[in-house]
């Protein structure tokens, strides 16, 4: 049975289609101002790519901040449950998930069946999220995709406050004016994201093995900074950004 998951995040909309334990395809597009339209468009593009007809998909679950604007979904569920289901689908051994998306960061602990036992989310603040990294990339005039590789070249990461995105941007500008090299500033930014997320995740207690999901998992610098903080490896796979959509599709397969 083919089922689909649509994850509407603050920055990107994701779609995934699965069938009997296999991922048939995934797609990512910008959300833009119209979440409803973004959901439909990313889903239709994925169907086109797979050469599939919408009628062959039996159930659809929507998730993410825009979950309630996906009018063609059979049901909506929160991204917390979907990330748990997605990570469990990809690796059933995983017991903790750190998800950093566009505007929020969260940590979850799941049981052996992929059910979420506990979760914690960031407070009303964008520090430590994808948006934080975007702001920093703009201040440094560096493409966000290059952040990870650049930061790995750093020998002495700068100290960046993790208190506030706006203040951290001023700190970065002041470091630039002092002549600090970009690599060190970027590595410092990654350390600050890792510190903030790790402090939050400790509230629920992480269990091994740990998987990182969300768009920010594509940034190797943040992953390495997190591994250093946690003191253990953090698993990342190619589906990190679409993990929520995959989880939604998997859960759609379990719908009655």
């Amino acid at each position: 049975m083919k089922t689909a998951g649509i994850d509407i995040g603050s920055i990107t909309a994701k779609a995934a289609i699965v069938e009997d334990g296999r991922i048939l395809g995934t797609k990512v597009a910008f959300t833009g101002y119209n979440a409803s339209l973004a959901g439909r468009s990313v889903y239709e593009r994925l169907l086109d790519e797979l050469g599939m007809d919408a009628s062959s998909v039996m159930k659809i679950i929507s998730t993410g901040y825009g979950r309630n604007s996906v009018d063609f979904a059979d049901k909506s569920m929160t991204e917390i449950i979907c990330h748990g289901a997605g990570a469990h689908f990809i690796n059933p051994e995983v017991r903790s998930i750190i998800d950093i998306g566009g505007q929020d960061s969260k940590a979850l602990v799941v049981d052996k069946d992929g059910k979420v036992k506990d979760f914690v989310m960031n407070d009303k603040c964008a520090a430590g999220t994808g948006r934080f990294l975007e702001v920093m990339a703009r201040a440094l005039e560096v493409n966000l995709d290059d952040f990870g590789a650049l930061s790995l070249r750093s020998e002495s990461p700068s100290k960046i406050s993790s208190i506030c995105t706006v203040f951290a941007e001023s700190e970065v500008i002041s470091l630039i004016s002092k002549g600090e090299v970009r690599e060190n500033i970027i590595a410092g930014i990654h350390d600050s994201v890792a510190s903030r997320v790790f402090a939050m995740a400790q509230r629920i207690g992480l269990s091994q093995p740990i998987m990182m999901t969300g768009g920010v998992a594509k940034n190797i610098g943040v992953v390495k900074a997190l591994e250093k903080k946690i003191g253990s490896p953090v698993e990342v796979n190619d589906y990190a950004q679409v993990n929520g959509a995959i989880g939604a599709a998997v859960l759609a397969g379990k719908m009655g």
Partner: peptide
């Protein structure tokens, strides 16, 4: 709202 929904799903 997301937190409450997720909590109730659990």
């Amino acid at each position: 709202a997301t937190r409450i929904d997720a909590f109730m799903e659990i």
